[in-house]
Design a protein around this nucleic acid. Sequence first.
DNA 1: CACCTGGAAACATCTGATGTCTTTATAGAC
DNA 2: GTCTATAAAGACATCAGATGTTTCCAGGTG
Lengths: 230, 230
Amino acid sequence: MALTDEAITRIRNMIQSGELPPGSRLLPEHQLAAQLGISRSGIREAVKVLESARVLDVRRGDGTYVTSLAPALLLEGIGFAFELLQGETLPEVMEVRRLLEPTATALAAQRISEKQLDELGELLRTMRGVAADPEKLIQYDIAFHRAVTVATGNDTLTSLLDGLSGRTVRARIWRGLVLGNVAQNTIDEHEAIYLALRARDQSLAHAAALVHVNTSESWLRTVLEQPGSE
Amino acid sequence: MALTDEAITRIRNMIQSGELPPGSRLLPEHQLAAQLGISRSGIREAVKVLESARVLDVRRGDGTYVTSLAPALLLEGIGFAFELLQGETLPEVMEVRRLLEPTATALAAQRISEKQLDELGELLRTMRGVAADPEKLIQYDIAFHRAVTVATGNDTLTSLLDGLSGRTVRARIWRGLVLGNVAQNTIDEHEAIYLALRARDQSLAHAAALVHVNTSESWLRTVLEQPGSE
DNA sequence: CACCTGGAAACATCTGATGTCTTTATAGAC
DNA sequence: GTCTATAAAGACATCAGATGTTTCCAGGTG
């Protein structure tokens, strides 16, 4: 494995060095192949890898361009990675969430805007309305937590938590959680978080988020102890 | 873009469903191509993508195998992603570290073993010995922080922090930090963390790690305000 | 039993051809 | 002059075949 991987590295270096800034266009395949001294096949594999990593954007009939390289794009792949983690590492992922989410929520309490607070309140109100519908409840639960992380103003943090709480991982866990008898409890915990943010109380926000994540985690533990849960 | 991407998805699904468990071998390229109904070129691009994501391990002359799918492998790529983040997002990465590392250090205080404490003390002693050599100081600094996260026993967390504090990002920041007049200060902060862990004092460990990360972050801020720092 | 050697299997790479899509320029209609 | 439809060119998508290299393993040899 030398030629193709070398091509990947060289293209990456061109981007990292600024020679190929975000949005710029790469040479056509055959010219790029000539420049890097390998065949089009090799170039295509290299480009495909960088495309899957959201570094390049290949537009058929047009050309290949460097993406914006925004955190939301580049960190998109980690959700992809988390989905392949085997069952025994799921508790580890939950633990990371338990470490990160309360702190992030506390940060949100410090920075959240009035408008974002209103949106959060609206989400909470909607959640109460669909408490009987598990699928919709999950959907709005995800939206609620995402809105909180967005309120931190840190895109990198948001993207990381998106990956940690990816739809697959979260759906697997929360579907069971909601189907259990704890729907009302979950909504109450969300309200506690909302009230803490509204009060801009960082300590309270931290505690409320911790309680909430802990509920999910302890539930997950009981599920994983049962056979046939995977 | 349909055929190759579909092939990627289908291979991923075979792995996720358990049809291809970790360590198992895939069909040869031409048989896989026949099964998925595309050409060898398409299969090769798909396999290359999954290989770059550390999902597959291609052994020339032998065959293609599913990796162990361990967190350390699958999350290896996020360091790769962080290296491509542009300058203005560097503060965001530092902020995530500021959120995560103190909490992780507090967790380590709870779980670290006697043996790991001894190793940490040894690292600290070594750091003092090479205080005058920036390159080596950076090297042992990385080892120190990694040892702390390893002590949490959470591989997923370790891999994430490895990515956040990847050699490139960290080296860029710390080279300047060490070249500044703060080498001794940095070592003192490490000792504070070590003592807190030794005392198994979670609150103190949290605080010490926060002070330490904050030092780096404020330094980074001053550097980024200067022109020509990138 | 240990070592060596051949062949088979599998990936690495290249080459060339064809299909399809996008963009753009051009010719025509109004 | 402007708008539109069409044609042509450029670029990626995909396929097919051939050749080189590496690895593994069976079988022979000492």
